[in-house]
Amino acid sequence: MSDKITNILLVGVGGQGILLASEILAETFMLAGFDVKKSEIHGMSQRGGSVVSHVRFGREVFSPTVPEGEGDILFGFELLEAYRSLSLLRPDAKVVVNDYRIPPPAVLLGQASYPDDLAARIRTGFANTLLVDGLHLAQQAGDARAANTVLLGAVSMRLPIAETVWQEALEKMVPKKALEINRKAFALGRAL
């Protein structure tokens, strides 16, 4: 095992299920035999505010937060939040971002507009960007609420972990009655 640490940032809006997704990642890396650390903020920010969760794995991980500018993978649940977090990434980072907008308060009030063509702007900085229609694919899998699992499937293709380990983690972390749909959603994400 090399000493290289892999740094993943999950970003989006409070209430989008980011914490659960980061739990599944952490569980997967632990099952794969790595040292894992993870950090995020609970509380105030969960009330519809910006949320950033850090997950790191490797032979030995020190800091629970990703050093600024060293993110390897950005797992974006919302376009504006993904764009806001780009400064945390390495120049060659990979981006998987949900094609989904949640207007922030100033936009709701008509005092600002939601920035245009964020996906294109992300791609300009980071060539390895995958835009995912999570909602649509999740509906295809059978439940709109599985959008995060579609994204997780796409993220899983960018990490050196065997599919069986991902499946094991899903089985452990996803409630039984939702497992079948989440497996489908995961597969759709992997096929992108």
């Binding site: 809006v13 409070g14 105030m44 920010s45 969960q46 009330r47 519809g48 505010g49 910006s50 600024e68 500018g69 504006l80 939040e81 764009y83 806001r84 780009l86 400064s87 945390l88 990434l89 390495r90 120049p91 922030p104 308060p105 100033a106 936009v107 600002a112 939601y114 920035p115 900085g125």
Partner: peptide, 20 residues
């Protein structure tokens, strides 16, 4: 010193917490 980030996003509408 830490390197400055790759992208300068300019000002973006903030997303503070809000009542549900």
């Amino acid at each position: 010193a830490p390197e400055s980030p790759v992208v300068d996003q300019g000002p973006l509408p903030p997303r503070p917490p809000n009542m549900c």
